[in-house]
Nucleic acid binder design. Structure first.
Lengths: 126, 126, 126, 126
DNA sequence: GTGGTCTAGACCACA
DNA sequence: GTGGTCTAGACCACT
């Protein structure tokens, strides 16, 4: 599981970490029980602040993707579920993105094809 | 075309305006040539600052959704196209969102169904 | 001599008129002594304000490209010369434009080729 | 890298900053990776408002000359390319300027000489 | 009336 | 410390 941080992205670093860990889980590269690098480890690897890593980990813990073991540190747990709340958020997140694509002339099929391609990656990783 | 601003949202106001105008275009509520409310008009309608509105309008202008007519003010112009750059951005935007949904146990079909529902709205508006 | 006004350009209309008349002279489409359409005529043709046209004409008069005849209205006169002042202005105008092209990786030859193409038009028109 | 702002100029301050930074890149005084003074720093140095500086920086970011590093602030990144769009803009920008010079009696050679002189500066800076 | 620019301040998120 | 957002106001250019 390799993280790639883009310091010149407009996405905050903690969010990049969070996103990539979730993607790692989706891709099957991170499985239930896997231990994550320690906060210190990851922070020093990338030359970033401890707080930044901790923030990412804590959010993932709150969402149910990670839990803290006294010894192992942060480990993957798949407690996150797609409840109604999440579905609602999902729609809100997708709406402007899909609207943008559609307004630029992409057809429903073209857009769905891209979604499918992304999801295919995840299915193959399982 | 009605805008709704959520002041408690963590999405910046200018971004909410931007997104809703793009959605308006996607939904067919805003058509090429339509004049938007003037910066000051919209700002005063919502009790927000004119710079906030201008920022939203200017981004849309840069992206090709709006242009500034010297008499009419900002008008809808669909110059935005889905070039390779945009497709790349689109994938980057969708990736973490879809990964999140998938990691929470949603199936490909469930996720695509939601995408399809959103896109259906847009197709009906045309 | 055909004028084309772009209401959605960020160049003021009076400036567009001014520029196109100068280009008309450069291209040989407007020759010394030619009468321009009256202010009223041109304004009504394009549905623009009298002041806008007058402003363009007056600037051209100040710069020596036009003069006013009691009967004929504005006529082309080539009194404008390239004095040191103008050369200085010319350099100041060109500097940022050429810097931009160069910074984007265009070579000297590529840039000069474009300049030459534009100037060629003018020479052919004489 | 020294900036000079002319407060009496009719060129907007943000545009002067933008142009001079591009010229700095063209002249080789600003190289890829160089950090620019912070928005607030530059603003206070010149006694201007931070929004004015930010506007200049943001335009340069949009055009690909700068990017925002989450620690270093704005840094030079030469992502700006001379695509067809830019070439088109370039011609539109040059056309009226060269027409003006030509209409004032300057010859093709005289005009090209000035262009060449400007470009020579840039080549030497590399 | 429209948008364009600029100022002087504020508060926040991020690292 | 950095940039990001937002406010409240001003003056100007253009039409």
């Amino acid at each position: 599981m390799l993280l790639r941080i883009e310091f010149e992205s407009d996405i905050p670093i903690y969010m990049q970490i969070k996103n990539q860990i979730i993607e790692g889980i989706a891709l099957g590269m991170l499985k239930e029980g896997d231990e994550l690098p320690s906060i210190r480890q990851l922070a020093s690897d990338f030359g970033i602040n401890l707080h930044t890593v901790k923030k990412a980990y804590d959010i993932l813990k709150d969402e149910g993707f990670l839990s803290v073991h006294r010894r192992k540190g942060y480990v993957v747990t798949k407690n996150a579920s797609a409840d109604d709340n999440f579905i609602e958020e999902l729609k809100k997140d997708l709406q402007p993105i899909l609207a943008n694509a559609f307004s630029r002339g992409m057809t429903e099929d073209e857009i769905l094809k891209i979604c499918r391609e992304i999801l295919e990656q995840f299915k193959n990783g399982m």
